[in-house]
Design a protein around this nucleic acid. Structure first.
Lengths: 240, 240
DNA sequence: TAGTGGTCTAGACCACTAG
DNA sequence: TAGTGGTCTAGACCACTAG
């Protein structure tokens, strides 16, 4: 505890005082030079401590004014999502490629991929993920066609979304958004997933965006509801 | 761009070189003193730049060895979740308190709340969230009873989970986990949500844990599937 | 104008690594 | 033993705030 660096101990101490209500929401914290005196350290050390708390969104500073305590942190949750590497009872799904088609985009796809030219081409990759013999997740994706794109089925089978578009955007640059919702399955999805009419499916819609927020891929994962479960944890500390 | 602090510019430059593949995964980055020479700055400035990239999980350092480039960052997504403040077409739900009961825990509740004594008491708060006249979400929560706990209905009506347990854990200390899954509604849920037999519901299970990871609350939100939708964004930059 | 937080330097000491 | 990243200091200059 006490053998930790001073700036960690100071950050923990300030955090405790915020928790105890000694430093209140929106109130001015003691000044940097006051913290220096209180803890007997230099300005840089105090500022390192405050930077940690600012990274946690617990405080914020206004140059010329001072440092203030934030409201109770927002309810942000994190979860991990990797499409093909999801596990089912510790075993990974068997991936079967249903087809790779080069198509002209439907009006919906044109909107989702922000394509204006209806004669442009889009690659549609369709896959089915099996739990042994049982279809569990149906995966369909649309990616604007670019020359040199891998469309040979053997190449594409096990690619996940970021890899499919990695020729047009660096893996580090990709923004990704997902939307989770639930629906009664329609006839097509029912027959693909081999479920009864009107059984629910959970849909995970994925958007891939490049650094300018232009869509470079769009798709949906249809889960047999029995195979869908997400765990998320509230974001708290950065390890204080 | 160039009027930003040096440590920001240096971090951006190093990040770009990682993206361009000039600095490769798991490879040793140039040494701190080499960066000092390259950018003509002091060690502290280089280390501030590297700290930013370490906070993004792009690099990691081993004292005595050097600084290394991480694998492509994990697929972590964030979303915001606040139970009663969720909106439906821009309007908030109408909250109706169905009841507050002090009960002896069922075996399931005993496991979820890690209660060993079956004669101990648990408070069950049941609420229904309406979209105008239509039931949208059914909310049931279980909290170990403690003396002084608000159990008067008027007091409890609009409390969200963290507030209900705030007497036993500080708002800053609470760990929260949620699990999202889908199910065919049973008879009870169907009648509460006024949906047809076998319509799907989405279940958001919530666990509240104190700082020692002991459960201090457990509950489920049952969504009429038409009212369920989650948006999540991939975690990337810290604003570089 | 006096005070604030933000950035930066030169120099110091430390624990750790690896030969 | 020489080299690494981590921490810390004293002192400096800056842009910003607010009277």
């Amino acid at each position: 505890m006490t053998d930790k660096p001073m700036y960690i101990n100071i950050a923990t101490d300030i955090k405790n005082n915020i928790k105890l209500g000694k430093y209140k929401s929106n109130a001015l914290l003691p000044l940097v030079h006051e913290f220096c005196t209180k803890y007997g350290v230099s300005r840089v050390t105090v500022q390192n401590a405050l930077s940690l708390l600012a990274a946690e969104n617990l405080i914020y500073s206004i140059p010329g004014k001072g440092t203030f305590v934030n409201e109770v942190p927002a309810n942000e949750f994190v979860f991990n999502f990797e499409e093909l590497r999801e596990f089912n009872n510790g075993e990974s799904y068997i991936v079967k490629l249903l087809g790779v088609d080069i198509i002209n985009p439907s009006p919906e796809i044109m909107i989702k991929l922000r394509i204006e030219d209806e004669s442009s081409r889009v690659v549609n990759v369709k896959r089915l993920l099996f739990d042994k013999e049982k279809p569990a997740i149906y995966d369909t994706k649309f990616i604007p066609y670019y020359s040199g794109m891998p469309v040979i089925e053997a190449e594409i089978g096990y690619f996940v979304f970021p890899e499919l578009v990695s020729n047009v955007v660096s893996l580090y640059e990709i923004n990704r958004q997902i939307t989770v919702s639930a629906l009664l399955a329609n006839t097509e999805i029912c027959s693909i997933l081999k479920i009864a009419q009107n059984e629910p499916v959970v849909i995970v819609e994925q958007k891939m965006l490049n650094e300018d927020n232009i869509p470079v891929g769009w798709g949906k994962l249809y889960y047999n509801y029995q195979y869908f479960s997400f765990n998320a944890k509230k974001i708290n500390d950065q390890g204080l």
